[in-house]
Design a protein around this nucleic acid. Structure first.
Lengths: 162, 162
DNA sequence: CTAGGATAGTTTGAGTACCAACAATTAACG
DNA sequence: CGTTAATTGTTGGTACTCAAACTATCCTAG
């Protein structure tokens, strides 16, 4: 049947068989695989906590505020890797849902000090359980032996690139 | 000065010093670091090819079509990890820019056979140069020794999660 | 004490993503 | 055949993203 004949050289039309796609240079690009893996993990987590109307980004915001009460929106943006303008509507929503409090700061009236409400803390605790379960699944795939090295590499990428 | 005193237990207000943010459970979550690294890599590449009005996603689409001429939009979506509905406007744009051709298929009149124009091929070749340079930078950060293991792990995540 | 520049947060605009619903077409099966 | 089911690509809805322009406030020189 000679389904895909010669894998080198320029591809020809009928060569494409859906299951055996050629990735070409993409196959070796870290960025490409990083994107696919991130999207897959994102979707899996989103499915898991769908009922809470929370996505990974919102959870990260909640967790970061919980860990750093009094944090400003700009600092939060840096920590979460998002532009400050992205956080405005997200925080509006979290405030509207009575999960987060915005408090004006006396010493600098431009900025807000963010913190969780009691309800926000409760929800965070609950979500953290799901997040842990999700991450245990990822641990399994990555392999506990490689996890710390894997995370170190990811951090190195984040830090070096900015 | 006791800047941040006790790192365990519930954080207190003045504890927040912007540079030394507490990540809490997030610190150990693969998904969180995956996201930050992906975004960093994405931005770095986007900056590099800004003049071409191309982002990583568009480049991947172009590269996948180049490697698999005659591919359908659905198959392309699967390969690029995107919903088919996302590709419609992206392909419209690429066709409008005379980089990609959509050809109707006689055997299945529902689907298109995608291929690059000569102009598309030229641009792809040029972009691939930049992509290689970008990835060499990533290689350096990851370390050539760990690269293949790192990519294997990313692929494992992508495959296992879907 | 006042003009200039930096910074915090918001708004707006363009781009991208998913999903669900849809029309056109093809395949499967009685 | 002919009805039903599956598939291809598009559209519409919602959500999220960045970047640039904007307002309000703060800081720093002179």
């Amino acid at each position: 049947m000679a389904k895909a004949a010669d894998r080198r050289g320029r591809p020809r039309e009928s060569d494409v068989a859906e299951e055996t796609l050629r990735l070409g240079p993409l196959a070796d690009f870290i960025g490409f695989h990083l994107r696919l893996a991130q999207e897959a993990s994102f979707q899996a987590f989103a499915r898991r906590v769908r009922d809470y109307k929370m996505r990974p980004g919102r959870f990260a915001v909640l967790a970061l505020i919980g860990e750093n009460p009094g944090i400003s929106q700009t600092a939060l943006g840096r920590a979460a890797g998002r532009d400050k303008s992205t956080l405005t509507p997200a925080l509006n929503d979290l405030v509207r849902r009575s999960l987060v409090k915005r408090r004006r700061v006396a010493s600098d009236r431009r900025s807000y000090a963010l913190s969780l409400t009691a309800k926000g803390e409760r929800l965070l605790d609950e979500l953290t359980l799901h997040a842990r379960a999700h991450d245990r699944l990822l641990d399994e795939i990555v392999g506990l032996k490689h996890k710390s090295e894997f995370i170190r590499t990811l951090r190195r990428l984040t830090m070096s690139l900015v």
